[in-house]
Design a protein around this nucleic acid. Structure first.
Length: 505
RNA sequence: GCGCCUCUAGCUCAACGGCAGAGCAGUGGACUCUUAAUCCAUUGGUUCAGGGUUCGAAUCCCUGGGGGCGCACCA
């Protein structure tokens, strides 16, 4: 764990990373010998760099003021012209130039400036000025080293592009790539926008268990873990749904959770084994209310993140403020294949259609499973603009309420944008007797070989027996929405530390 | 899991069967208004690892490892 480079012998070689680190570590030693602490405990600044720019950003070129400021940041660039050094300081939300004149700071302090390295954290005290060319600067009177960087920064102009290094060393990515900083600001703004919108509608934010005895609420392979004291197998949650609906039974009426869920499945540009889901449940609401709040949440968040409701998706400009089209899955799919696709169609017919579209049906597939698979193989990827796909078959929607006009379908929707599923919602099934039958069907499919099907969750059924009011529910994949708004095409770009194989040291 | 691509200095990249190079960073020097400062000089390599082919391998082949993309998987 302790990094102990062989400073003496490496410095003899004169170059390379080890030598560079040795040189800087040697300087740390010199500073301490001279009574200067290279890692001081704290530093008080009077202004952030953005505050300096906000207050004095409009000064005329060649202005010298008496306004004293103390700022702090990381030195990103240095331009040495002899007895005058310009350094670019950056903090969380701004940059400012330091104007360091030998005549101002004195010979001794000026000598020490050449020992600073790009990447060092500095504190600077001085007066606000602009240079002859108009660059807002701090005319430094006193410079304090706040933390010595031992390792050199990546290329100052081209940044860090190697994706492996960018994700493994996200700290370095954030230091040198403005785009990475932008994406995570978008993500932050997305999440806080959702919280604001939901708070405005009277939702209560809750936290439910991550460790589950039954991994329910979705069809997915769970991660399995073990509790020593209880000596029992536990699963990391694959959805938030069933606990949140227990809270609706409890009378909380409007609840939501933004939480990490875990699915032990493949990794791709759209999948990370752990990802963030927002689920909400609203008493007395049905699927139409849920679609309305879905539109509001995503449109408002886009506006909050970008200042506009316009997005460019696959080169197509889309205004999220326009109503999002709603189509039944069976209609979209029937149109796509040129004949009726519906759970009521004889299963031999569905099998033929599925095989015609390159699918390999399995014996345990129910009619609704065929409908869903054919939809995914044909119509799904064509849904570029935000589109609500509704009316999923009952036999693939064990927690959704039956459509009041078609007993083989449910009052459910999935939101697709750019061919990707971003959200899923429905009128919640609240009849405990029917829910038990649905669970038993799930269990039967599982026994028939479909490992991702659910089992009977007796505690959830007990909760429903106490009475759950009519309820609408929604799940939103936060990472995918962040991708959409930030305009990036890999989920790893919106997850600070995506799942990677362990580094070989 | 399968297929294709990829891995060269701290970073960004050349060299593609014939002496491993450049820019940035670093080091030494010049310069008191720079903006990726500039100018002069300069250090730095287990070419991912191992094996093979060859007079000769960063380069071709094999095995392994990391990563990317696609497929599969994935409410």
């Amino acid at each position: 764990m302790t990094d102990a480079p062989d400073a003496e012998s490496e410095s003899e070689s004169g170059s390379g990373l080890a030598a560079e680190k040795a040189r800087r570590l040697a300087h740390v030693g010199e500073l301490r010998s001279a009574g200067v602490e290279p890692y001081p405990y704290r530093f008080d600044r009077t202004h952030t760099l953005a505050e300096v720019r906000a207050e004095w950003g409009t000064l005329e070129p060649g202005t010298e003021t008496e306004h004293r400021v103390t700022v702090a940041g990381r030195m990103m660039l240095r331009r040495d012209t002899g007895k005058l050094v310009f350094a670019q300081l950056r903090d969380r939300d701004g940059e400012i130039q330091l104007f360091i004149s030998k005549a101002v700071v004195g010979d001794e302090a000026f000598e020490q400036i050449s020992d600073l390295d790009l990447g060092d954290w500095l504190g600077a005290e001085g007066t606000v000025m602009t240079t002859r060319t108009g660059e807002l600067s701090v005319r430094v009177e006193r410079l304090t080293l706040l933390a010595k960087a031992i390792r050199p920064l990546p290329d100052k102009w081209r940044g860090l592009t190697d994706v492996d290094t960018r994700f493994r060393q996200r700290y370095a990515d954030l230091i040198v790539n403005e785009e990475a900083r932008r994406v995570f600001r978008v993500r932050h703004e997305l999440v806080s926008s959702i919280r604001r919108t939901l708070a405005g509608h009277g939702y209560v934010e809750v936290e439910t268990p991550v460790l589950h005895v039954e991994a329910g609420g979705a069809h997915a392979r769970p991660f399995v873990t073990h509790h020593h004291t209880l000596d029992m197998q536990l699963y990391l949650r694959i959805a938030l749904e069933l606990h949140l609906k227990r809270l609706i039974v409890g009378g909380m009426e409007r609840v939501f959770e933004i939480g990490r869920i875990f699915r032990n499945e493949g990794i791709s540009t759209r999948h990370n084994p752990e990802f963030t889901m927002m689920e909400l449940y609203q008493a007395f609401a049905d699927v139409t209310d849920v679609m309305a709040i879905t539109e509001e949440l995503i449109t408002t968040a886009t506006l909050d993140c970008t200042g506009s409701t316009l997005l460019t998706i696959r080169g197509q400009e889309v205004d999220l403020a326009e109503p999002w089209p709603r189509h039944r899955m069976v209609d979209l799919t029937s149109d796509a294949v040129g004949e009726e696709v519906h759970p009521r169609v004889p299963i031999e017919r569905l099998r033929a259609i599925a095989e015609r579209h390159g699918l390999r049906p399995e014996d345990h597939w129910a009619p609704g499973k065929y409908v869903e698979e054919i939809f995914e193989a044909t119509a799904e990827h064509q849904l570029v603009r935000p589109t609500f796909v509704t009316g999923h078959p009952v036999d693939v929607s064990p927690l959704a309420r039956t459509d009041r006009t078609d007993p083989l379908l449910t009052e459910r929707f999935e939101l697709f944008v750019d061919g990707r599923e971003l959200a899923n919602g429905y009128s919640e099934l609240n009849d405990p007797v029917e829910q038990r039958v649905r669970f038993e069907h799930e269990q039967a499919f599982k026994d028939a070989g479909d490992a991702e099907r659910a089992t009977v969750d007796e505690d959830y059924l007990r909760a429903l027996e106490y009475g759950m009011p009519p309820t609408g529910g929604l799940g939103v994949g936060i990472d995918r929405v962040a991708m959409l708004i930030a305009g990036v095409d890999s989920i790893k770009e919106v997850i600070l530390f995506p799942t990677l194989r362990p580094e070989v040291w």
